[in-house]
Design a protein around this nucleic acid. Structure first.
Length: 659
RNA sequence: GCUGCUGUAGCUCAGAGGUAGAGCACUCCCUUGGUAAGGGAGAGGUCGAGAGUUCGAUUCUCUCCAGCAGCACCA
């Protein structure tokens, strides 16, 4: 039998018998490597130490030093160890699937009684016990019939269903952890003792549909996180605490920005401080849009169903719309809704999107090709009946305002408009403190309208536009809207979370449905394309992102209360008012605090309230016409003249586009 | 929407089958204090809503509403 050649990372090659396993290869190199080995990488593929190699290959023996592989194996093994622990404690529980996810793993179980927090503790203890048993992990490939018979005999219906879903030509691999066994594509560690017993934690239990399908049974999913060592686990738990501290719902209350209440679920009551952020941001966007060649418009909130039928929303989106019935015979005199006159009832819907209304504006009067591209922008207030479980603070709401715009243009203007938008967006994101963003390019989905030629042309235009502005992108094949391809723009925040904010979508469909047209150079009525685009997404969500990004310590120009001027003794009160007036005269949002409290108390309160600058004034400052300036998060104070302070803070309060 | 958990003062949270408590915040008084909580007093709650069990329910049961985590959703 001819030998096979295995090439190591250093370029050296050695000959082995066909069918040699990485475990044997490691053994042939050194005993210590064999012991330390956790898996191999064979021809770039993550490979179990027990899997045979049949042909010439490149090979690397992985150890715990190889982070990517080590973490994957640790987490994957823990998924199995957890499933085993659960079945050892509750043999009647049925197992399903347990994949590795970011930071850890989960496993879905079918069990009648809910898992309690105490159960999680018991499972964790049992897992540690299993790890300490150091059971060898072994694997075999089984015939499909044998595997199905095995699982039927063991009353594991979910496993049977899984096997039936695996394509027929794929081998079925079984893994044993000691006597416990699971269907798994691997790879796994050599023995359970290789899993660090002190670097994992079960986090939570939650419902999850079997195979992600809301018509299938609801299972119980237990989430765990795992790392290579105790310190990494600790660091991750600290990160979670950090994220919790940044929670915009908590900060929104502490900073007195907004509240929500059950009479208006998913809608925001903005307080003065929060509304100040909102309007500052909106003013900024309005200036940017004007400079960017957009025309701002405003369109109705409540619109007759006829328009939604024409646009297609009534068919496809109705269950997400707030529907309003009005009995027009009442004429405002009869307040009893129960005696509505059906014949006179008119059905309206709150607009969930602005696009149909924007087409109405476009449709007024005859448009010439000379009018294109026509960029119509609206801070459009929309209402969507989001499922209750989707609501989340001000990030996912039922009433919100988009920084929306629709660009009406010809097909050959798409590319330039797209490139122009990316530049426009990049400028805004940079000024708002997000210099890096990711573009995802979503192409034609399976269910779509329009010809292949048209999709070819439009997808090409978008791709060329991204290249023209010199940016990278991630391709997401099949993720486009049914009417056209789109670009989505993702921001990464200070603690690594990713948010989709901007979007750019090409739509030939809605102009068609709503009969938009312009007169082309050849004198014929022609359909324009419509480009949907947004930068922030919604003000509500974007402000939530800003709050969490900055942990409440907003950039000075966005801060609702930029300066608090606090008296140290009451004899300085008059001077405090003078300082506040001087700041306000220069456009700085300043407030006086002359309460009968010690300066310590005032400093603490305004620090908790995330006021960026506190100016303290005692008798010394009164005499010198100075202020003692303290910045949020800093301990030291600086005494400066009133004049220079006002000038400096006024400059700092200037929005980035005006600076 | 689904599964699980939660709902007590403005906030954070105790508590019990016989209609309630703490700390902070709030009001008043004392204190004029130099950079993250000075002291004292006071006021404040239909215990998420409705129904049932009970002599009696805020506490037990059911339904609903809202919130939280996850899933599904985000055309």
């Amino acid at each position: 039998m001819s030998q096979i050649s295995l090439t190591f990372p250093d370029g050296n090659a050695r000959s082995y018998n066909p069918g040699v396993t990485p475990a044997e290869v490691a053994e042939s190199i050194s005993k210590s490597l064999a012991k330390k080995a956790i898996s191999a990488t064979v021809n770039g593929r993550h490979w179990d130490l027990q899997w045979p190699i049949d042909a010439d290959s490149t090979i690397n023996i992985n150890t715990m030093q190889d982070d990517t592989q080590a973490l994957e194996l640790i987490r994957h093994d823990l998924a199995h160890i957890m499933a085993r622990a659960v079945q050892e404690i509750w043999p009647e529980v049925r197992v399903t699937i347990g994949p590795v996810i970011e930071k850890g793993w989960y496993y879905d179980f079918d069990r009648k009684e809910p898992f309690t927090p105490e159960d999680l503790g018991a499972i964790e203890a049992k897992m540690k016990e299993i790890i300490n048993r150091r059971d060898p992990v072994t694997t075999e490939i089984w015939e499909r019939d044998r595997a199905i018979a095995y699982y039927q005999a063991n009353n594991e219906p979910y496993k049977v269903e899984l096997i039936n879903a695996i394509p027929g030509d794929e081998p079925l691999r079984m893994y044993w952890h000691g006597h416990w066994q699971d269907l798994c594509r691997g790879p796994h560690l050599q023995h359970t003792g290789q899993v660090p017993a002190d670097a994992f934690k079960l986090m939570s239990v939650a419902g999850a549909y079997w195979r992600g399908d809301s018509t299938r049974p609801m299972l119980q999913r237990i989430y765990g996180v795992a790392f290579k060592n105790r310190n990494d686990l600790k660091a991750y738990l600290t990160f979670l605490e950090e994220a919790e501290k940044r929670d915009h719902r908590k900060l929104g209350r502490e900073m007195d920005l907004f509240h929500m209440q059950e009479e208006a679920p998913g809608q925001v009551f903005w307080h003065p401080n929060g509304w100040s952020i909102y309007t500052t941001l909106q003013d900024y966007m309005r200036r940017k849009q004007r400079a960017g060649g957009y025309h701002e418009i405003n369109t109705p909130q409540v619109v007759d169903r006829k328009l939604w039928e024409a646009s297609g929303h009534w068919d496809k989106y109705q269950h997400h719309m707030f529907i309003v019935e009005v009995d027009e015979s009442r004429d405002g005199e009869n307040d009893d809704a129960a005696i509505k006159d059906k014949a006179q009832t008119r059905i309206n819907a709150l607009k969930p999107m602005n696009c149909p209304c924007h087409v109405q504006v476009f449709n007024q009067g005859l448009k010439s090709y000379r009018d294109l591209p026509l960029r119509l922008a609206e801070f459009g207030s929309c209402a969507r009946f989001e499922p209750s479980g989707a609501l989340h603070g001000i990030m996912r709401v039922r009433g919100f305002t988009q920084d929306d715009a629709h660009i009406f243009c010809t097909e050959d203007q798409i590319q330039e408009e797209c490139a122009r938008f990316i530049d426009f967006l990049a400028d805004i994101y940079r000024e708002l403190g997000f210099p890096d963003f990711e573009i995802r390019f979503a192409t034609r989905p399976e269910k779509r309208v329009g010809t292949e030629e048209s999709w070819d042309y439009v997808e090409n235009a978008l791709e060329n536009a991204i290249k023209a502005v010199g940016r990278d992108y991630v391709l997401e094949p099949g993720d486009g809207a049914f009417y056209g391809p789109k670009l989505d723009f993702y921001l990464t925040d200070a603690i690594g979370r990713v948010w989709q904010c901007g979007t750019f979508q090409v739509d030939p469909n809605l102009p068609e449905r709503l009969g938009a047209s312009y007169i082309a150079p050849n004198g014929e009525k022609t359909r324009p394309f419509m480009l949907h685009r947004a930068c922030l997404g919604s003000f509500e969500r974007f402000i939530g992102i800003l709050i969490e990004e900055h942990a409440g310590k907003l950039p000075f120009w966005l801060a609702p209360r930029q300066v608090v001027v606090a008296s140290i003794v009451s004899d300085a009160d008059d001077y405090v008012h003078e300082v506040v007036a001087a700041l306000r005269a220069k456009g700085v949002q300043a407030e006086a605090d002359i309460r009968n409290e010690k300066i310590n108390y005032k400093v603490r309160e305004h620090s908790v309230g995330k006021v960026p600058v506190i100016l303290a004034c005692g008798m010394k400052e009164v005499e010198d016409r100075s202020v003692s300036l303290r910045r949020l998060g800093e301990k030291q104070t600086r005494v400066q003249t009133l004049e220079e302070t006002v000038a400096a803070l006024a400059a700092e309060a200037t929005p980035p586009d005006l600076a």
